Simulated assay, not measured.
Amino acid sequence: MYKSGDDLRQDHLVIQILYIIDNIWKRYGLDLKLTLYRVLALSTNDGLIEFVDHAESISSIKKNYKGEIKGYFINNSTAYSKETALGFDIKILENFISSCAGYSVITYILGIGDRHLDNLMVTRDGCFFHIDFGYILGEDPNNV
């Protein structure tokens, strides 16, 4: 996706740091299901962002599934998975828990700000992730 009117250099930097953190964690046997996508800043005013297939914002899920992420997971599950006690595959829940843990640690350490439901995404296989890293290292538009 081409994005104009936004400086994506910080997003590019944060994504590169996420790749490094993910590699370190995996080296020690910890796969926290981070969703890594590419960002390329072309200038201080535009750039390219890779789409993450089958992902939806928490804001959209809240609106479309009566505030329950469980409904989103059930709706996107196979017929076989819907017959489980959860109504969806347990692997989806495991992915969600692992990725929430990973991104919680990362956003805290990097001091990522401007977090709201439009910047929080979930894939249909349960992987939670963040987008839009315009405010890092303690910067936050709400603290101005």
Rank of each mutant, 00 (worst) to 15 (best):
I69M: 14
T78D: 11
L48N: 09
G138I: 04
C100E: 05
K33Y: 04
V14Y: 00
S59F: 05
T78L: 14
F73T: 04
G29F: 00
E68P: 01
G5T: 13
Y28V: 01
L117F: 12
I21S: 03
D114L: 06
D89Y: 05
L34G: 00
D7Q: 12
A101R: 08
R38V: 11
G47H: 00
S4A: 13
F96K: 02
H116R: 05
Y65R: 12
Y28S: 02
D31E: 01
L30G: 02
L117W: 10
N95C: 04
H116Q: 08
F51R: 11
N75F: 15
F73M: 15
A55G: 13
N143H: 06
L48G: 03
Q16H: 10
A101I: 14
N95D: 05
I109K: 09
K91W: 03
Y28F: 13
D11E: 15
N75L: 12
G87K: 09
G111C: 13
G87L: 08
D46Y: 10
E50M: 08
E94Q: 15
G87C: 10
N119H: 10
S4R: 13
N119R: 06
H116A: 12
Y37H: 02
G67Q: 02
D132K: 02
K63G: 06
L18N: 02
G126H: 06
D118Q: 15
F129H: 14
I92M: 08
F129Y: 15
K70N: 09
Y80G: 05
